[in-house]
Simulated scan of single mutants.
Amino acid sequence: MSENRQEEQDSQGSESLLTVVIAAAVNLVIAVAKVAAGLLSGSAAMLSEAAHSFADTATELLLVLAVRRGARPADDSHPFGHGKSAFFWALMAAGATLVVGAGFSITHGVQTILYGEELADLTVSYVVLAVAVVLETVSFLRALRQIRGEARRWRVSPRDYVAITSDTAVKAVLFEDAAALAGIVIAAGGLFGYQLTGSPLWDGAASVLIGLLLLGIALYLIRANASLLIGQAAPPMLRDAIRAELDSRPEVVETVELLTMMLGPSDILVAAKVDFGHEYTGDRLEEAADRVERAITGRWPEVSHVFLDPTPGRAARRRAAEADGGAP
């Protein structure tokens, strides 16, 4: 592992960890306040929002574990490092959101619609929601700032970066904070609807909507992490750039096959079958392969392992067939 790559991984890991810790602290404070407001008012939407915040807190604690476990160095038992453990714990975090947040909110909302009761004074609930908006915005902007910085480095839009990034911790914080802000708006709408009509239907419906919002976020994150865990390739734009780099090298005649895999956040494996020029044999072939490898890792520090397999390309196979007197 190069020194530059190690420094970059440490820097990104530290920034991601700070983003997750800030989000966890914010959600814990908000969760306690929402529980108090929900119990005082009897609002299902407020209690669902409390479950939402507690689920986010549990999720972010698991994401802290994901960042720390994923950053452990390679060893004899795990020669490619522990990066995939970050995907595993991020998958568990998404599962916590699904079970704790979505499950409770939908169930409690349905019960409120069927057996709803009158609510008490909602002043405290509105105050708590207002404070929650401020705190959740702070956490959301922190995650958004990190994503914008990484997007500039990759020369893509923040939206495209979120779609392709393997930094599941930051992606989860961004989506969960966005869902939290949306949930606050929904909860406030449910309370206001109850005040206007006196019907608990509004409060229960808001709780169900919050649950469905969490369900969608959880399923998206589960799918993304599962794909990374079972060996997702690097983003198409990166694969195309690596292939272009290989084909541009003077040592290379043709890139016969290129395979990539995400080993962890900011940790990529590259394996390629490469047709080197016919003049590269023996020691010269080893030196050429080493130059190509250094060119790739120098341009993309995220690439931790490069395996090059000298393989005849179409032109080489055609020459060999012609030399044997066979059809090309």
Rank of each mutant, 00 (worst) to 15 (best):
M1N: 00
M1R: 06
S2C: 04
N4V: 13
L18F: 15
V21Q: 02
A25F: 13
A25E: 00
L28H: 03
L28C: 08
I30M: 07
V35K: 01
A37E: 01
L39E: 00
A44Y: 05
A51I: 06
A51K: 05
S53F: 13
S53R: 04
A55G: 12
T57A: 09
E60G: 09
L62C: 10
V64E: 00
V64S: 05
A66C: 08
R68V: 15
G70Q: 06
G70M: 09
D75I: 08
K84C: 03
S85M: 13
A86D: 00
M92V: 15
A93Y: 12
A94S: 12
A94N: 04
T97K: 09
V99Q: 01
V100E: 00
F104E: 01
F104D: 01
V110Y: 10
I113M: 15
L114F: 12
A120Y: 04
A120M: 05
D121M: 07
D121C: 05
L122V: 03
T123M: 12
T123L: 13
T123Q: 11
V133K: 05
V138G: 05
R142D: 00
R145D: 01
Q146C: 10
I147Y: 07
E150M: 15
A151V: 11
A151W: 13
R153Y: 09
W154Q: 10
R155G: 00
R155L: 08
R159Y: 12
Y161H: 14
I164T: 11
A172P: 08
F175H: 02
F175T: 00
A179P: 03
A180V: 10
A180W: 11
A180R: 09
A182T: 11
G183E: 00
I184M: 11
A187V: 09
G190H: 05
P200Q: 04
P200V: 09
P200G: 04
L201W: 14
A206W: 10
I210G: 01
L213T: 14
L215K: 06
G216T: 03
I217M: 11
L219C: 05
I222F: 10
R223H: 14
A224Q: 14
N225I: 10
S227M: 14
S227H: 14
P236W: 08
L238N: 01
R239A: 07
D240N: 13
A244E: 11
E245S: 15
L246F: 13
S248F: 10
R249M: 14
V253Q: 13
E254A: 07
E257H: 13
L259M: 15
T260V: 03
L263T: 01
G264H: 03
G264S: 02
S266P: 00
S266Y: 15
L269C: 03
V270M: 02
A271Y: 05
A272R: 02
A272S: 05
K273R: 14
V274A: 04
D275Q: 06
F276A: 01
G277K: 05
G277N: 03
H278M: 09
E279D: 10
G282D: 01
R284E: 13
R284C: 01
L285A: 07
A288G: 02
A288L: 04
A289V: 05
A295L: 12
R299K: 15
D309W: 12
T311W: 14
A315K: 12
D324F: 15
G326L: 15
G326D: 11
